[in-house]
Every structure is written in structure tokens, then in C-alpha cells.
């Protein structure tokens, strides 16, 4: 359950890609999140006008900071402000953690991410790696080009495959193309819960592939990232 609004201090702003930045926030009242959950960021103008949006936590739980990775959407009122105006030392009102798209850190996970949908799954992957359970989560990330890959110092890896839909990096053997059964099959283990995150169309197509791989619908969780500013 989310706590009250709290004023978080921006400690660092990091560029992930041309359209994504990660904001490290220090929380005065830290509340442990489950990997996969999100926070709301609320902006308030001097005249009382407010705008708020939800952003997934990219960092594993622990400590008094969270990393929120924010995609700069073309017409996004909040994401544009965060990208263009916010700098270390600023205060942002946040509330969280929130969400059912959450991992208990024990259940084996198949994570399937499209583009910016990697953010909540990265929190899971980082938690598993940090806690000495590599392989408990198997991640498959689909991005358009190498320049679109978030967290490229940590991806790909033995527990995280990356597929490219438009353009492949040098030395990569899989041709560019949409996610297929052959991309997902190597990541399937027994007793996994599948966490799908990305655009609505991506999630539907990934869910359909998982059904073909006989993953029961009851073991599929979906978080759809839409245009939400």
C-alpha cells in the first residue's frame, strides 16, 4: 500500500538513451517496494495546477533511494518537464510504491519487455543478481535498435537476452525482426510466472506467443505502458 506524498530529493540524473533518463531520488520516508512496482510523481505549479504520472522503479529494493527511469514522450507534460528542467538538488513529490505488477523475489520469473517496458523488469533482474539468485529471472528484451537499449552496461547477459526489431549491433547473429517463439523458448523454465511489460500491442503479441508455448494465462501478468505523459 502506498504511503502519503513525500518530498524526494533528486540525487542524480543519468542518461540511458536519447529519450530516457533515470532519476535517483532520496526518500525521506523510505518504503520497501517489490521489484516491478511504480511510484507516482506529482508536479505542482505556483497557481496550484498539478500534473502527475506513474513511473516504474528500476532499482532493486533496499536503502533510502529509488531509481525511476522516465521515457520522454513527444507530448508528455510531465516527462518533458522531468527531462528538460529537473536537476540534482531539486525536490519532487512522490507517492508509492504501488502496483500488482510486483515480484515476491522467490518465484521464478520469465520477464518479457518491449522498449521502455524493461524498467520494472530491470528492478527484478537487479534484485535477483544482487541477492545471488541469477537465473531466477530470465529476461527477454525487445528493442528497435542498439541505441534504444536501456541499461546497456547490464544487458544482455546469461540471464537476459536482447532482440532487435529494426537494426542489430555488429557481430549479432539474429537478424532484426519481431519477437518470435524461438526467442522466448530458451528462457522458459518450469513453474515460472511471466511478467510482460511494454506497449499494449507488444504485450498482446507476447502473451499470444506464451500461450503457444503453453504458459497458462493464470501465470501471465501484464503491465501495459501507454502514452501517459
Amino acid at each position: 500500500m502506498p504511503g502519503p506524498w513525500q518530498p524526494a530529493t533528486v540525487l542524480a540524473v543519468r542518461t540511458e538513451t536519447a529519450s530516457a533518463k533515470t532519476f535517483t531520488l532520496r526518500l525521506p520516508d523510505p518504503r520497501p517496494h517489490l521489484p516491478g512496482q511504480h511510484y507516482i510523481v506529482r508536479l505542482t505549479a505556483p497557481d496550484g495546477y498539478r500534473a502527475q504520472r506513474s513511473y516504474s522503479v528500476a532499482s532493486p529494493p533496499g536503502g533510502d533511494t529509488i531509481d525511476l527511469t522516465v521515457e520522454h514522450l513527444p507530448d508528455g507534460e510531465v516527462s518533458r518537464f522531468l527531462h528538460e528542467a529537473v536537476m540534482p538538488g531539486d525536490t519532487l513529490e512522490v507517492r508509492g510504491p504501488i502496483g500488482y505488477f510486483a515480484w515476491d523475489s522467490k518465484t521464478p520469473v520469465l520477464g518479457v519487455a518491449g522498449g521502455s517496458g524493461v524498467v520494472p523488469l530491470m528492478a527484478m533482474l537487479r534484485a535477483a543478481r544482487r541477492d545471488g539468485h541469477p537465473g531466477l529471472i530470465q529476461l527477454v528484451v525487445s528493442v528497435r535498435t542498439p541505441a534504444d537499449l536501456y541499461y546497456s552496461r547490464e544487458l544482455p547477459g546469461p540471464d537476459a537476452a536482447v532482440v532487435y526489431t529494426r537494426q542489430i549491433p555488429a557481430g549479432f547473429s539474429r537478424p532484426a525482426g519481431r519477437l518470435t517463439l524461438a526467442d522466448l523458448a530458451p528462457a522458459i523454465r518450469g513453474h515460472q510466472v511471466a511478467y510482460l511489460c511494454g506497449s499494449s500491442a507488444f504485450c498482446d503479441s507476447a502473451a499470444s506467443l506464451l500461450r503457444d508455448l503453453e504458459v497458462p494465462a493464470a501465470r501471465i501478468r501484464v503491465e501495459r505502458f501507454g502514452p501517459s505523459g
Binding site: 506529482r42 508536479l43 505542482t44 505549479a45 505556483p46 497557481d47 495546477y49 498539478r50 500534473a51 502527475q52 507534460e77 518537464f81 528542467a85 500488482y100 505488477f101 510482460l196 499494449s200 504485450c203 498482446d204 502473451a207 506464451l210 500461450r211 494465462a217 501471465i220 501478468r221 501484464v222 503491465e223 501495459r224 501507454g226 502514452p227 501517459s228 505523459g229
Partner: peptide, 30 residues
Amino acid sequence: GFTGRRQQDPRLPPGQYDAGADWPVLSAES
């Protein structure tokens, strides 16, 4: 630095924005 890019539409409840032509999809299930 935040001023908001427009006046709050009186039809909008607090904290909401107009999605315009988009109809975002949110559900926990496939």
C-alpha cells in the same frame, strides 16, 4: 520551474489530464 502548460480544464477531476484521441489500456491480465 513548473508552471503547467495549460489552464486546468474544469471538466477534469484533480490530478487528471485529457488523453485526447488516445484510449490507454491498463489491465493486469493478458
